[in-house]
Design a binder for these strands. Structure first.
Length: 685
DNA sequence: ATACGTGCTGTTTTT
DNA sequence: CAGCACGTAT
């Protein structure tokens, strides 16, 4: 039994939640009621613990039902983990009824039910970044801008940024007028029409449309407020303006809003994240309570001291100094390697040495880098040395060509108007429908204002080469056959039907440079069917649309594929971004060089490197016991070998926290008198 | 329509 | 070192 908070409405006799293991600040965060709450939670301060305890506390007090709690996390992995942790506190049954998801999948779910009031069909398709670009490129080509070269990516970036600020084509105000901005409003509205014609929404629309729904449809707003009576947002520093607006509208009435974040760990500014959301929370909600958690239960004092020194260089932050009682521990090793291969072998040697000496698991080691490309030397070497590893993120399953192809088939089946997907697979595998035939079909469709699929069905009336005619017929037969197989035998079997009746594997074999490459691609292709099967088993009622939605938002789907690997005892390789929220006893941050960290793109004259510094800070604070930072003397990038320049961040580290080493030195030396950190214990209160 | 060779250019993070 | 656009040969 615990002592209660100050809320007079609070009745201690209901309490069965044990809060005695929380520190006073954590406990205050769990018990606060009646007004919005901002929890400024430093790295390793027990942030997830607070959120899960708060949820459990709400449930244990019978203050609400699980289905009325909406917890928003930044990644789906975090969502799954949160559900599991709440489950341990309140039982799996309650936990299952909670809604825990990312903003994007939450919005997708809302739109599936409510989008018709916004003039879209319920069967809408979600376009990912590459679909978006493809469609944008098509729109751009209609502007016949002559010889002027435009970068589609640049438009896509600007449109996305504008959308995330809640703007529309007619409210867009160019920041600085250039040739892009001149065209942007017109292109944007054309793009928006094109999406509409295809029954498609892009990632940003998911948020934008929900925000519109909440503004324009009072009944929907009331329903959602009723349903989501308690709102918790994790990683609040990474929310953008639109997400803030959605949360604000949902919470305005019941005011049960709890946000948890750390401005020092804001690393998604490039994606529209507004640190202002966290810095000015109290301005948006004047009755808000703010609680700071600055006791760290994760890292040694040495690591924290260094991390604090680095982050202190940033202005524009809510001052906070992490402290811990974990002991000084080892110094941070700063290793200079000759090149990126030497860097990899040095890390490998250290992993082996420390693992053997302290009897650790492979999964106790994390190797963090700034950009995905840096994983390669590590992968090659680890494979040679038989160090089990897994690359988290990187080339995601869903970015693979094979997977996109199969998914495009499914998308066409689910939404025949989706001609971005249709164009992608109409001639994959090759079936004689070349560019000229495609253009002719396209013209026919455009002339009558119909989707491309209509033109295919009426292809016999068009002037087309025989090969194309036959190909189209074959293609339509394949779709019909797959449709039937999906309906009669289920998702997995339907996809297998598609793979085996399309000649897809044969085409893969032909186009693969080697037998090994073919085998790998084949495996990916078949995995798609396996994953779908797994999904269908877990969600028996789900239809194709829902499956695709999960897949494009990378929800359960990717976990079915990857979770196994993640649970295995492997060294984890990942970007600094992907490492947020994780911790490892032993961490390596590699490539501490100018151009890499801070990244070249972030060094531009006018921009400051604050976000790169935060990224470094996030990386450092992942380490519990030991941290190694590496640089190289030379590095080969895009085939060019160049002398490396040490990262400016290294100078920001207090020298007394560091031990300088060369790549052939060991972690433990003969004369080493540092007391080894205790790798075994460390249970937070 | 497709297969294949050449030359060019781009440097990051992800829901 | 890619991956891509473009051009040429079949």
């Amino acid at each position: 039994m615990i002592e209660t908070g100050l809320d007079p409405a609070y009745n201690p006799s209901f309490v069965s939640m044990d809060l005695s293991r929380l520190n006073p600040e954590q406990r205050a965060a769990v018990e606060h009621r009646g007004s919005p709450l901002l929890v400024l939670a430093g790295a390793g301060s027990g942030k997830t613990r607070v959120i899960t305890a708060r949820i459990a506390h709400l449930l244990a007090n019978h203050e609400t039902q699980p289905e009325n709690i909406l917890a928003v996390t930044f990644t789906n992995r975090a969502a799954a983990e949160m559900k599991e942790r709440v489950g341990r506190l309140v039982g799996e049954k309650s936990a299952k009824a909670l809604q825990v998801s990312t903003f994007h999948s939450f919005c997708a779910g809302v739109l599936r039910k409510e989008i018709e009031s916004l003039g879209y069909s319920k069967r809408f398709t979600i376009y990912d970044a590459s679909d978006q670009r493809a469609l944008l490129a098509r729109c751009l080509s209609e502007f016949s801008t002559g010889k002027e070269a435009f970068d589609v990516g640049f438009f896509s970036y600007r449109i996305s940024r504008a959308k995330n600020r809640g703007l529309a084509p007619d409210t867009y105000e160019p920041f600085r007028y250039d040739k892009y901005d001149e065209l942007l409003p017109a292109l944007w509205s054309k793009y928006q029409q094109a999406l509409r014609a295809r029954d498609a929404v892009d990632f940003d629309d998911l948020l934008g449309l929900v925000n519109r729904l909440l503004t324009e449809n009072p009944e929907a707003l009331a329903r959602l407020r009723e349903r989501h009576h308690h709102l918790l947002i994790d990683e609040y520093q990474d929310t953008n303006a639109l997400q803030f607006e959605i949360a604000r509208k949902l919470a305005l009435e019941h005011r049960n809003l709890c946000v948890v974040g750390d401005d020092d760990q804001s690393i998604y500014g490039w994606r529209g994240a507004e640190t202002a959301n966290i810095l000015e929370f109290e301005r948006a909600f004047p009755d808000a309570r703010a609680i700071t958690l600055d006791r760290n239960y994760r890292s040694t004092e040495t690591i924290l001291r260094a991390a604090n020194a680095v982050i202190a260089r940033n202005s524009e932050r809510r001052a906070k100094n992490l402290w811990s009682k974990e002991g000084a521990g080892w110094k941070i090793d700063l290793v200079t390697a000759t090149d990126e291969n030497d860097e990899a072998s040095c890390v490998a040697a250290r992993i082996k040495e420390v693992r053997a000496r302290f009897n650790l698991a492979w999964s106790d080691f994390g190797v963090l880098y700034r950009s995905n490309i840096q994983s390669r030397p590590f992968e090659i070497l680890f494979r040679q040395l038989r160090i089990p590893y897994v690359v988290i993120g990187g080339m995601e399953f869903f970015d693979r060509k094979e997977v996109k192809d199969i998914a495009s088939y499914l998308r066409v089946l689910a939404n025949p108007r989706d001609d971005i997907a249709l164009r992608r697979i109409l001639n994959v595998p090759r079936r004689g429908i070349g560019d000229t035939a495609l253009e002719r079909l396209n013209e026919a469709a455009a002339a009558r204002g119909k989707p491309l699929m209509e033109a295919l069905r009426g292809a016999s009336r068009l002037n087309l080469p025989d090969s194309a005619r036959a190909g189209i017929e074959e293609f339509l037969r394949l779709l019909a056959g797959t449709q039937a197989a999906l309906r009669e035998k289920g998702l997995g079997a339907g996809i297998l039907h598609l793979i085996h009746h399309s000649g897809y594997l044969e085409e893969l074999e032909k186009t693969s440079p080697s037998q090994a490459a073919y085998e790998a691609r084949k495996e990916i292709t078949l995995e798609m069917a396996g994953a779908a099967e797994g999904y269908a088993r877990e969600h028996p009622k789900a239809n194709l649309l829902e499956f695709l939605q999960e897949a494009s938002l990378a929800d359960d789907f990717r976990r079915n594929l990857k979770e196994k690997k993640f649970e295995e005892d492997t060294v984890r390789l990942m970007t600094l971004h992907a490492a947020k929220g994780l911790e490892f006893p032993v961490v390596f941050i590699v490539g501490l060089e100018e151009g890499l960290l801070p990244h070249a793109r972030a060094i531009a004259p006018a921009t400051d490197v604050a976000e790169e510094r935060r990224l470094f800070y996030v990386g450092m604070t992942r380490a519990r016991k030991h941290l190694t930072l590496t640089t190289t003397a030379t590095r080969t990038v895009r085939g060019r070998t160049k002398a490396s320049v040490e990262s400016r961040f290294l100078e920001e580290l207090p020298s007394e926290c560091l031990r300088y080493q060369m790549s052939n030195q060991r972690v433990l030396e003969e004369e080493d008198t540092f007391p080894a950190p205790n790798f075994v214990t460390s249970v937070s209160p």
